[in-house]
Design a protein around this nucleic acid. Structure first.
Lengths: 366, 366
DNA sequence: TTGAAAGCGATACCAT
DNA sequence: ATGGTATCGCTTTCAA
């Protein structure tokens, strides 16, 4: 031990942490010895007596995806600055049954707190977390009693949908409903709900055949979009629930000989790192900032400076208009105007976007 | 504690771990009590006596990026199966000076082993790791004395370059040399070296103005590619050091009105999750498998079953031909044939790809 | 098969 | 300002 530096364990402990009354001379001597011997206090021992681990669990549905990896980046940076470590828990592939044990063994005495990304806890998990009594912060969705950092998914989708409508689109498709296996996620639900709401506020309805279910991956979206683009009637604009979905839709459109945005407009949400190079119009959110804020809220809680009210930190979003959206090729019959030029779509038979909104509940509420 | 279950701490300890001689009846009783009380042994105390933490540090240059996030996913899955946890350490933004302390405090008594992705350790780090005496596995590049999992970067780039040459391209550009700040990474160096080698084996040279330096992001690549596409002479094919770079190049090409692959072919390496939807020809590597294998090697070492020789696990790669590569629009003068159709490039003045390789060191070695 | 007791490496209280 | 020591929760001889 560093007691080879001439003093007692107690003094070493005090000196090393810079606290308490220790004479400068002694402190320097201890520090020197510590450096010399590459000494670092054992976290296990410290943890045993203090009860704290300086670790924070981060639970993510898929670490693999840009959004989550970016949030984690933000979290990690902030926590590391204060000497905290990130314990990663990727739920991908976990089933309903394996989830609880996972978080249980992971958190118990290993982490001082947990940050949960997007996935709502099941009741058993909720009670586990309550029982452990450790601070919890959620990112991406709100949970009663826990501080959260997020964007307003409904507002974001409202911006996207309104952009489409304001460009003159009436035949609007939606990409991003989810398969039953992930219906527990809030974001897909909220975005879809906002889309439907805004549409109907403008007297518009998106028919089922233009509503694409997918797993929120680009490949999945491309597959479903491809089927839709083979229909006799296709929308003039597709609102995608995320940029990755939008990428898939754009890709499918191109394979069907459709030009973006002349034949079909596409808009996403996120401002994914690749959105700019693919010229995708989107609603930007600052993902890493969400991670950083979640990390800071966690640090506050860990330092006992918990806010007196439950934080709900809602970050702004911003419409970023790029080249993937434009006015519809053909103007709806109820608002006559120029007709679009003949497009590759025509040549391929994927033509004749409808001239009016399908079953408009109400004409031109806007 | 669980001694409320009627036995002594020692028995509890034995029963819970299923080891040693414990009567089935006693064991069941202890297990029942443990479940009842939600009891889980404190890792800190266990760690204090056993010296092991059941944690593995994972060090990445950026885990924001698809490649790294995917490797981590693979690692995490394998480790979790055996009850090990992943401690993340993201080096992004770390400077030459802050790196050592980071790994030092992170690893010391917190992790039983370390997996290092792509970044070669500095001498001080190497000696730190040696001193700690913990198992190390590297992914993406080989380090003397440590087991590694990787692909053969030179071979992979050889496949890509040869594909371009076999399609008939002679005017080939390269995207993916790196700025001075990251010259320590091996992969960019190896891929570049292989490109140059294969080129010269075929009597070809890539001039500096067709050699794009970038930070290995799509956006960075797009910016540099854009400059190149504004030159009076451009290559008929661009070999990109990674798929993300290729995405940037494709994007820049499109913005210059160039069609892919008619006006310019693009090939990458990785088979990025988005490669298929963007129809990118690439050299596939199984990234998650590399993570899984690294995880398994680590587990072996942790279980004391270290291989007798230092493992160097080189995974196969595979050429995946998609739509982003095709024969050159104009056939080289030394191999006359059809001329390409007039393209958008002509209309934009970004025309006249050269009719023969620039300064060929040797004609037609192939 | 089970229990008692000695650490593991720090912290914190109590003396000095 | 510094040194002793009980303590944290578990594993591990050693006895019984």
């Amino acid at each position: 031990m560093a007691k080879a530096a001439g003093v007692s364990v107690a003094t070493v402990s005090r000196a090393l942490r810079g606290v308490d009354r220790v004479s400068p001379r002694t402190r320097d001597r201890v520090l020197a010895a510590a450096t010399e011997l590459h000494y670092v206090a054992s976290p296990a021992a410290t943890s045993l007596v203090s009860g704290r681990t300086r670790g924070v669990g981060v639970i993510t549905p898929y670490f693999n995806r840009w959004f989550f990896a970016t949030v984690v980046t933000g979290i990690e940076k902030v926590l590391r600055e204060e000497g905290f470590h990130v314990l990663l828990c990727d739920l991908e592939g976990s089933t309903f049954d394996t989830r609880l044990p996972i978080t249980q063994t992971m958190l118990w005495k290993r982490a001082d707190g947990v940050i949960i990304l997007n996935v709502p806890p099941r009741p058993a998990e909720r009670s586990l977390l309550d029982r452990l009594g450790m601070p919890v912060v959620t990112v991406g969705n709100r949970q009663p009693g826990w501080p959260s950092v997020r964007i307003d998914d409904r507002a974001a989708m409202g911006v996207a949908t309104r952009h489409a409508i304001e460009l003159g689109h009436r035949d609007i498709g939606y990409a991003g409903t989810v398969p039953a296996s992930i219906t527990h996620l809030q974001t897909p639900f909220d975005r879809r709900a906002a889309f439907t709401t805004v549409m109907s506020e403008h007297g518009l309805v998106c028919p089922p055949e233009w509503t694409l279910e997918c797993d929120w991956t680009a490949a999945g979206a491309a597959e479903h979009a491809s089927r839709m683009f083979a229909l006799p009637r296709i929308p003039t604009c597709i609102v995608a629930a995320s940029d990755e979905i939008a990428f898939g839709v754009m890709s499918a459109a191109r394979r069907h000989g459709l030009r973006v945005p002349q034949d079909v407009s596409v808009i996403g949400i996120d401002d994914h790192v690749h959105a700019e190079i693919f010229d995708l119009t989107t609603v930007r959110q600052d993902v890493e900032a969400q991670g950083r804020r979640a990390g800071r809220i966690m640090l506050e809680a860990l330092h006992g400076r918990a806010a007196d009210t439950v934080v709900d930190d809602v970050l702004d979003v911003e419409l970023v208009v790029r080249g993937s959206t434009g006015p519809p090729r053909m103007v709806p019959a109820d608002a006559p105007g120029a007709t679009g030029a003949t497009s590759a779509a025509d040549a391929l038979g994927a033509t004749s976007a409808a001239r009016q909104a399908p079953k408009p509940a109400l004409q031109a509420t806007s």
